[in-house]
Design a protein around this nucleic acid. Sequence first.
DNA 1: AAGTATATCACCCATTTTGGGGGAATAGCT
DNA 2: AGCTATTCCCCCAAAATGGGTGATATACTT
Lengths: 210, 210
Amino acid sequence: MNNYFRSRIVIVEDNDAVREGFSLIINSVSNYYVVNAYDNAEDAIKNLRKDAPEIVLMDLELPGINGIEAIGVIKKNNPNIQLIVNTIYENSELVFQALCAGASGYITKNSSHTELLDAIDEVINGGAPMSSKIAKMVVNSFQKNPNSPLSSRETQVLELLSKGKSYSMIAQELFITKETAKSHIKNIYSKLQVNSKSEAIAKATKEKLI
Amino acid sequence: MNNYFRSRIVIVEDNDAVREGFSLIINSVSNYYVVNAYDNAEDAIKNLRKDAPEIVLMDLELPGINGIEAIGVIKKNNPNIQLIVNTIYENSELVFQALCAGASGYITKNSSHTELLDAIDEVINGGAPMSSKIAKMVVNSFQKNPNSPLSSRETQVLELLSKGKSYSMIAQELFITKETAKSHIKNIYSKLQVNSKSEAIAKATKEKLI
DNA sequence: AAGTATATCACCCATTTTGGGGGAATAGCT
DNA sequence: AGCTATTCCCCCAAAATGGGTGATATACTT
């Protein structure tokens, strides 16, 4: 078959059966083909320039270097490569971290032919295939904690503080005096049981107060 | 039909046909029912306590107050309510903002019976229904810009700076002297063409350098 | 009616932080 | 040999920070 118009795919997967199964499926369709399949991330990274894939199917449970780290390295060296994570952990924190590290989506190891090819199609078309549960985790990650001990004004002040604004700048933006901003910050520190800007930001970030 | 074991749903939608269509679909199944349907967000918000829905189907293109603002208000007053956004804008920034404001997922106005009910099922089961393209936007929102002008060390320093750390604290965490941290910050400011912490953080955040 | 939380503002004071100006040395890569 | 990255040093003035101890007014709850 002529490969010139087929999208190049690299597989990184230590399980021989899964790796060969995925290869067969991908090579059976006319729009994709597997340029190379590796059983570890190190070899894959070494040959990325030469393989020049559009998409990498990446196992998260790998021997040697961690799948998450591998994603980071690949994305750093080759930002245009899209990574689809391939994992047994349906809803784990690991998948979430993979998305943060730069993955474009994920499929599970027991995916059908159709699911695998659909996921690749989606990524090629600019989408991010993932389950509804993972999507929820992702969405939750930037939604605030509704049980914040801080008042709305305090939250507002803390948000500005977290953007590196000084007391005077905060005061200016909120049309209050510097002393009032300071007063809010004192109350924030007291409520969060901290006594410095960085501690307040750290705690607020951890508990999603801002 | 006995409503005691059916999940309560509120619809906010100014288009009469869509509102009534959705009501009919939802009321036709045994596990959900529409407690109330409003053509504006203000009335819906007023009656939220009384209606006590588990799910609100929220139109984004509303007369009166903005759909995004409405989501914020509803989530603030009633964090346990799950919002499903209902929009004509398949891939707009608006949908993305809605998710940030607290929505749990979205469906388009021309969704089929099945798609509507599937979306509700997913939300009830802790998922976040959304298209692959929206998922991609969401995932992209916390992935870094690969074309950063900053070196990795500088990025590291700027990340700590953005957490409210002082020069001395940064130095301590990176096992360098305060002067070196300062030197990096000088270079960061020069590369980003800014001359203060807050400007640097603002620019870096905007361009996803950190 | 009393209490609590919120939001606003003021002054004092010591210590730190910040940003800008000069440098310089080492390493690595092209 | 030039470039970038990373490390470190000194000087200095202005700004920011955190803690203290207040006051006033509004609003909501009990």
